[in-house]
Write a protein that binds this DNA or RNA. Structure first.
Lengths: 207, 207
DNA sequence: AGCGACTTGCACACCGCTGTGCAACGACGT
DNA sequence: ACGTCGTTGCACAGCGGTGTGCAAGTCGCT
């Protein structure tokens, strides 16, 4: 082995990291951003990016992996050992919110194109958990909806994007966004508005 | 003037119409479908398409115009003279559903890219009506949500797309879709699930 | 049959993007 | 001072897309 330069963060590693971060931001602005746009935005030449990632696909794929990991982690941690479906959803959404916001482009990209085949698949386990949770809520009568659980999951996902868009356009304050989104999601699942609000307040308090 | 051939639907007009229809279907399958794909799908050569539309932009633009017109028409007609906000929303969604489903690609395309600058603007008046309706509902206490009316409008829009996706994936039967979507939307606006169901049933009956 | 409008099949120029090769040029640790 | 590794700049081939030009069809109507 050669030397490990500084700690273990060489100039190259730092660049790689920065490219990833900038790529995320850039792709958020324009899902079809070219390698050149990304490279320039990262203060680097296109050729350099190819030094770190063999292809555009590979770059995005890496981003997706990070996103999925972060989401799965947040979700699992948020609702560990919570029995009440409504509370579980509340905790889950509140915890997922900031992460989902950061990676929203990728998730949005996941549901609409084949850009990277397999984004959906990589998100599948996460989605399945959610479906099971919703199903349990419907069975127990905590939730109420004419839509079957899987469809309700779609709806919840889209609702989050809608609220993110609203935040983007300045229609909702960032501070309230997470809470409002959570109440909205619970309400859509058939939880009475009053109960949803109360629940979110309670969960938020216990942070 | 030359002759008007048959009635006033020449071979060319029929082709133009078919190209538009096929283009809609094709773009629905792949929002980035090329002129060649569209042409072939319409049983025509690429060159011919350019004979009817000067550019890709122009083609899509025409499609968008038709969509906006159809949507605005359906919406206006559906809730003419309905005072109760909940009922107005129910009627609106039920009427909008089939049209929106047909044109969903364009509307989805409208909210995500700059493909045709100005889709959002063309949809703006429609959206404004909806916002006003939601606001009235919130003011009158018929609706309840922590989200301001404009954000709620975003959410409603996205929910419709979610249900369409669900139908696409076979999670919801086509026959129930419209009703379910409507109940879901009303519920998300804070209308109690039971009341929403009842309302939709009632409105559906009076077709 | 003949006219005119529409369509076809090629040709082309042009663009932007991807991915690769290679030589020169830094910077940094030792 | 030296070598190594990352970076740069340029050049190149390739692909797929758009929009246009033009000559030769083809269809319907008169």
């Amino acid at each position: 082995m050669t030397a490990m330069t500084t700690g273990n963060t060489s100039r190259a590693d730092a660049n790689r990291r920065r490219i990833l971060d900038v790529a995320l931001a850039e792709l958020l602005r324009d899902p079809d951003a070219s390698m050149d746009q990304i490279a320039r935005a990262a203060g680097v030449v296109r050729r350099t990016v190819y030094g770190h990632f063999p292809s555009r696909e590979a770059l995005i794929s890496t981003l997706v992996d990070e996103a999925v990991a972060a989401l799965a982690d947040a979700d699992a941690q948020a609702r560990a050992g919570v029995r009440d479906p409504a509370e579980a959803v509340a905790r889950s959404v509140l915890a997922l919110w900031p992460v989902a916001d950061r990676y929203r482009l990728l998730i949005a990209l996941a549901q609409r194109t084949v850009t990277v085949q397999g984004i959906r698949e990589r998100l599948a386990p996460l989605r399945e958990n959610k479906v099971r949770l919703l199903q349990r809520g419907l069975d127990e009568g905590v939730f109420a909806s004419p839509l079957p659980a899987p469809a309700l999951a779609y709806v919840h996902e889209q609702m989050l994007f809608a609220v993110m868009e609203a935040v983007n356009d300045g229609l909702v304050a960032v501070a309230e966004a997470g809470g409002s989104a959570t109440v909205a999601v619970l309400t859509a699942a058939g939880v009475p508005a009053a109960r949803a609000t109360e629940l979110v307040a309670e969960v938020s308090r216990r942070t």
